[in-house]
């Protein structure tokens, strides 16, 4: 699969969504949680691209990283760009995303590794 570039999408750090995220992750604190940007990968266009790339294989979240150049602010708007690539051996999708301010300043880079497995694979083996 050739690399697929998606976005930039307008994403937000809405207080209500962040509070719901905090509650769901048993987190506390005041600011935007470090791992909150993972929720932005649920953007319909990104999700559809992942589903298309998976085909009949099941994506298993294998790895994740967040590298912060500057903290995200509560109630702000950002731009998210994603590059979706595929590796063959072992089969996995690699999503590299960057979140920037509307002025273009980098805030956070994240990488998501999704291992692609046959639905029949026994995970407990």
């Amino acid at each position: 699969m050739p690399e697929l570039r998606l976005g930039p999408f307008v994403v937000r750090t809405e207080r209500t969504k962040i509070e719901a995220y905090r509650s769901a992750t048993r987190g506390g604190g005041q600011g935007v949680p470090v791992a909150f940007p993972i929720c932005w990968l649920g953007e319909p266009e990104i999700r559809t691209a992942i589903e298309d790339a998976c085909g009949d294989r099941l994506p298993l979240h294998e790895g994740q990283s967040f590298v912060y150049a500057r903290a995200l602010e509560m109630g702000a708007e950002y731009r998210l760009s994603v590059v979706l690539g595929e590796e063959a051996d072992p089969p996995r999708l690699v999503l590299k995303a960057e979140c920037r301010t509307p002025a273009g300043e980098l805030c956070v880079s994240m990488e998501t590794l999704l291992r692609l497995v046959s639905p029949a694979l026994e995970l407990s083996a």
């Binding site: 791992a35 979240h61 994740q64 639905p119 694979l121 995970l123 407990s124």
Partner: peptide
């Protein structure tokens, strides 16, 4: 998938 129960999202542990 051979698991006794659903696996927890990795990102829940991560968070």
């Amino acid at each position: 998938a051979g698991l006794a129960a659903p696996p927890v999202h990795g990102m829940l542990l991560f968070a």
